[in-house]
Computed example of a mutant assay.
Amino acid sequence: MTALREVAVVGAGAAGLHAVEALRRAGYDGRLTLIGAETEPPYDRPPLSKHLLGGQWQPDRLALRAPQALRELDLDLRLGVRAERLDRQGRAVQLADGHRVRCEAVILATGVRPRRLPGAEAPLAGAHVLRTLADALALRDELRPSVRLLVVGGGLLGAEAAATAVGLGAEVTWLVSTAAPLAAVLGTETAALLAGLHREHGVRIRQGVARAVTERHGRATGVRLADGSHVAADAVLMAIGSEPATEWLADSGVPLDDGVACDAYCAAGPGVWAAGDAASWPDPRTGRRRRLEQRTNATEQALHAARNLLAGPDSARQPYDPVPYLWTDQYGLRVQAYGSPGDADRFEVVDGSLTERRFAAACARDGLLRGAVGIACARALRGQLRAQLAAHGPWPPGAQ
């Protein structure tokens, strides 16, 4: 193990927490600082758009660790303060409160920032994003029977929020820019199934491109579309994607390319590592850079970065080659996906059926398995299909 005595982890979300835990489990006993911009201790984000937004959970249920477990990590825990600059030469992180945290090595896990539409770049009543606990609570306060909610964005976050809101009695319009929302993530067949579920539950799906949030007397009134039309609403949720929160690294010398540009081992330079939503790395399969905004990746990549950090320069570091995994809960169904189902052009059900809304399917392209997706068929997905993906195997199995 390397002889480091001062390590800092910037970002106190899931990736940051798992990084500090991995360092301690591996025997690192030096000073360990965890820095987070939010005032809350590390909490889980996936329930924000579901259990918390729907009111089934209260904020305390989101905590990733009990206070005692955090104390046992013996952290210098800095919450509610942003990192402003990484001084690589001086081996320190400059904080917004004026303090400097010395560190011989640093793991960058600052996550992402939600994009906003023109007209709502600054805080505007009735215009919402959904990234933090505070965001979710603010939107929850708006959701009541008959309120008109406009969800802008055809990704998983928008889909989950729409499903939750309509379940609370809101009149929901889901504005998407493509004819098949979620197809790029889950594949055409699964996306069509979910779109049908949304319509069955009363969500209005409208295709169009949002240009700006409109307002009157300091409150959002809807969204203006590219074709000049206007969609009126009492509240607007902007779920239009995100960008890596890396602006504070601009003059640090850390390479940035759609996030912190790491090598195959999660390193972004001597003493600098990255993990989670803000980290990009070369995919061993394609050679192209990839960045995953997925909860499972935050955990796995943080563990990997921590292990490689401690391995030292003379040890054999392990390249990061995950099998991406995501899930989404909508209308009482859990959809699970491995790999990249949206990159496939062949969809083959191997268990169950789409009509039953219980299936596992292989998603292939050019004779290779690219992804797997299913509902209520976890065993089939985790078994043969995941193993085939991990092996970069052909489809069908045994094909040459």
Rank of each mutant, 00 (worst) to 15 (best):
V176N: 05
G393R: 09
D141V: 11
L52G: 04
R100E: 12
W57A: 01
R100A: 12
T286R: 01
A261G: 11
A138I: 07
R307P: 08
A165R: 03
D283I: 03
V231W: 00
V272E: 09
L182H: 11
H230M: 15
A245E: 00
G126L: 03
R211E: 02
R140C: 12
L369V: 01
V349W: 01
G169E: 07
G196N: 07
I107N: 03
Q94W: 02
R346I: 13
Q388R: 13
L48R: 00
E40G: 03
G287Y: 02
I240L: 11
Y43T: 06
L95P: 09
L381S: 02
G367A: 10
A298I: 11
A96L: 09
V10K: 01
S353C: 07
A184W: 04
A122M: 15
A362Y: 01
E243N: 09
V7G: 00
R291I: 07
L117G: 14
T246R: 06
A165S: 12
G196K: 02
A302T: 06
G352T: 01
A125C: 06
R140Y: 07
D329M: 10
S280K: 05
P47E: 15
M238E: 03
A311I: 10
R24W: 03
R211Y: 01
R144E: 09
V350I: 05
R25F: 07
D251R: 12
L310P: 03
G312S: 08
L186C: 12
P59C: 09
Q68M: 06
L368K: 05
E21Y: 13
Q89I: 14
G202A: 09
E348G: 00
V335C: 12
G154N: 04
A239F: 08
D321I: 04
R317N: 13
R290K: 11
W327A: 10
V223T: 03
L117C: 11
A235T: 00
P59Y: 08
T214W: 02
H51P: 01
V20L: 05
C266I: 12
Q89D: 14
T188Y: 11
P114D: 10
P114F: 09
R24C: 04
H99N: 14
G218T: 06
A184F: 06
H99L: 14
R317C: 08
V349N: 07
L326S: 00
E300Q: 13
D227L: 00
L182R: 10
V172G: 01
R370G: 04
L156N: 00
E40Q: 11
G259D: 03
A12L: 12
T188D: 15
L168A: 15
R295L: 07
E121L: 14
L64C: 09
G222K: 05
E300S: 04
A316V: 06
L23V: 07
P123N: 13
G367F: 15
D343Y: 13
V166D: 01
V9E: 05
L34W: 04
A387K: 12
L186V: 10
L156V: 15
A136T: 10
L303G: 05
R216P: 12
P114V: 06
G271T: 14
R216A: 15
M1G: 15
L186Q: 00
E142Y: 04
